[in-house]
Design a protein around this nucleic acid. Structure first.
Lengths: 211, 211
DNA sequence: GTTATACGGAGAAGTTTTCTCCGTTTCCTT
DNA sequence: AAGGAAACGGAGAAAACTTCTCCGTATAAC
């Protein structure tokens, strides 16, 4: 495969990740194209239809998530810290995009099921260890973990997304979820005020959810 | 105003709330119409354009939120419980819809600013009291509170929304946010497993984010 | 330097969304 | 309970968006 082709592929996949996360799996492929900065023909040449794109995206992402889980377990001896490290990594990898698009748009074939199983097992290991160590309450399951991650790491809707351009807010809020509003499990820094929310969204001329 | 007109108005507003929350402020008004079970003409007669609908929706919702805050403060002597009660009420009122649509689509005029101020003051009172009582960490601000509520109470994307048909999951996850994963501030009941997530989304034939 | 491969833009075809007209139904008044 | 004003729903024209392809130009490998 030629170098520029590989580069385009990567840019399209990354763009698709962001776009599906923001606008759902029905987002126009045209939006992906624009975000990727490539021509429409390039996308359609590489991925014959939406399904092909989605399948490539999900496979890629699930594999990287499993890797991140292994990496977290290896890097942190403390099970809770390992879980925490993974959750933050998953947000950076845009786990939400994989979940949303996977569950919505894809017939799960043999290959995909295998990749998915690997990821689930790895994350379950992380969660189970933290739970056994008594660092995570027993009445929280994988589904909670995954859904809370999806909820918190999804981009904020519309103009609010500008608040979190660098992703810092996602990590902050993941920490809140992890540590709890009433806890004191590590400082969060300066409180975010409501005025800043207003200010960020007050900028006119932003066409909304789209770009 | 005639009784049937008032009834239509209410149904449209409720439907708009759900639809904007699920699909963002660009959702087709036609989707609102279908969900409300009225004809398109009825919507356009009552609200000349999207902006009129959105403005009515937001004004209505902000006022109800302020009410809910007052009610929570009056009903619960303990400041933390009052905050908790409000947060759950806000989710039921679909606060997310107001925030998203307000910040995105609306020029904030005099009237709207006044309503908004009232709501913010009421909620700030709740949060401040809980913080002073030492029940909420000092490094969490109104912005965090609002954004976390938006994040957690937004409907899950696409088919995942079926998991939470009755809203129970939102309340569960709000409690996680409030109490913290590592805390033990009240039992959450049976853990939600990953399999249930898969099962809920595995149902084919669901056209996705739309209805 | 040559050749095969990939690229971007313009635009046709198909789909979705917006918004109005008008005949029928529902509510209020007397 | 009957008349009249007001509201309703459905069909459909017009506009806006999406999808997807053709083809001349640019880029990478040898």
């Amino acid at each position: 495969m030629r170098a520029d082709a590989e580069r385009s592929r990567r840019r399209i996949l990354d763009a698709a990740c962001e776009v599906f996360l923001e606008r759902g799996p029905d987002a126009p492929l045209d939006a992906v194209v624009r975000r990727a900065g490539v021509g429409p023909a390039t996308l359609y040449r590489r991925f014959p239809d939406r399904e092909a794109l989605v399948r490539a995206l999900v496979t890629d992402l699930l594999a990287r998530l499993a890797e991140a889980a292994e990496e977290a377990r290896a890097a942190e001896p403390d099970p809770y810290e390992a879980l925490r490290r993974f959750v933050h990594a998953a947000a950076d990898l845009r786990m939400g995009a994989a979940i949303v698009v996977l569950l919505e748009r894809l017939v799960v074939d043999e290959e995909l099921a295998a990749v998915r199983r690997g990821t689930v097992v790895a994350v379950e290991g992380l969660l189970g260890a933290a739970r056994e160590a008594g660092r995570v309450r027993a009445d929280v399951g994988m589904g909670d973990l995954v859904l809370l991650c999806v909820r918190v790491s999804r981009p904020l809707p519309g103009a609010l997304a500008a608040l979190d351009a660098d992703g810092g807010l996602v990590h902050r809020h993941l920490d809140v979820v992890l540590a709890g509003l009433a806890g004191s499990d590590g400082p969060l820094g300066v409180p975010l005020g409501f005025d800043e929310v207003i200010a960020a969204a007050g900028r006119p001329g932003e066409p909304g959810v789209g770009e």
